[in-house]
Design a protein around this nucleic acid. Structure first.
Lengths: 208, 208
DNA sequence: GTTGATTTAGACCGATCGGTCGAACCATCG
DNA sequence: CGATGGTTCGACCGATCGGTCTAAATCAAC
């Protein structure tokens, strides 16, 4: 994690550093991101960078925390408030917000892909593992709550169902982000409802 | 593409080079793969490597062609033979074979992810673009044939439906490959049929 | 203005990268 | 045997990498 003095910088400066680094890490991965080019792009010197961060891995860890804050839905999530009546609408609203965040921070989608090709550096692997374990647990809680309510099928290994859903969801996110401008908000909303209906049919107990 | 003399090598030697390179490229990407370490692992010298390949990009292109051969189903695919009766069983069989290939060549799954973080090298970008354009077109043809037969819904942009399906399919592939050993062939087959039923419900016109 | 702590700057380091090149090796000829 | 053409080898090159370090700039307190 960044040295304490990092907090002394302007909030804008801190944000610019973390966002720029996040975009670069998301696009090129940890090893693929050049620290030299990054700080040159930011207009800060090497000495300054190492004054605020221990090393490249330290910057990455800080960015991971930043990414997690963006990934999480706003406000606390009260699973107990989900009941048989509102489970599907509440889930749909969560996904709608997630899609909005994905559009506002397109690098987050790139970040999620880092887990598949982790670098050798063990600190980085651990930071990614922790991040994605949290994300997976969050998704799994939503699914399990649906199973408790009888809304979601429980005849498949939950990891399998979760994999299918997350895979489809990430692909859908990508498609919506890529085509949002062309389609306009209304068409996106209409298609999003269709897509959510597909997700719901994936999750519900199969007919027959 | 590799120099013509590459064909003079034993088929085993050629395969070992291409498979080892494929695994490495799939795991670390183009830029992340070290040519020095690769040839050291293969036990060949730098001089020998450059005797058969123009450069690293040339090796990559050759590997891409190799990957495409593995990705494609065996034998020719006759879309006209798909009719309303056998569309779903035929599609299921195609997916079953794809899953078997994914298990036998796990690096192919890693290869498909390269498209999301392409390196700067324009030759590599083009090789990847061509490869994935072929793959997408192949998938799209299957979907369009289903639409002609009235089996598959056509009220969504086909690229959206295709994205969702491919995203879920790749995630499912990954899960099956990771858990195959633990589950055994029979359980994998049972779960695969459940998963295909999910894909079918994603593709069919929605009820109601 | 002087002092001392904080912050910035960039020259420099060893390691590794992809790629070049000339020498050596080796089989097949006359 | 020597000559020849195909093949292998590894030292070497410039570029770039992440990281170190010292000196200068800046700021606050008196």
């Amino acid at each position: 994690m960044a040295r304490p003095r990092f907090r002394n910088l302007d909030k804008d400066t801190r944000n610019q550093i973390l966002e720029t680094a996040a975009v670069e890490f998301a696009a090129r991965g940890f090893d693929g991101t050049s620290l030299n080019r990054l700080i040159e792009g930011l207009g800060i010197s090497k000495g300054s960078f190492y004054y605020y961060f221990d090393d490249k891995a330290d910057l990455f860890s800080t960015v991971v925390d930043h990414a997690w804050a963006v990934f999480l839905p706003e406000g606390e999530l009260d699973l107990a408030a989900f009941d048989g009546e509102n489970y599907w609408p509440a889930l749909q609203e969560l996904m709608r917000q997630a899609r909005a965040r994905a559009r506002a921070n397109p690098w987050v989608a790139g970040f999620t892909r880092l887990i598949y090709n982790p670098p050798d550096n063990p600190d980085i692997r651990e930071a990614l593992d922790v991040l994605f374990a949290k994300a997976r647990e969050f998704q799994a809680e939503l699914i399990r709550r649906g199973q408790e309510l009888g809304a979601v099928r429980d005849d498949l290994p939950i990891e399998l169902l979760q994999s299918l859903l997350v895979g489809a969801d990430e692909a859908g996110d990508r498609w919506f982000v890529d085509n949002w401008e062309r389609l306009g908000d209304d068409e996106v909303e209409r298609l999003f409802e269709e897509v959510f209906a597909i997700f719901r049919r994936m999750m519900e107990p199969p007919p027959g």
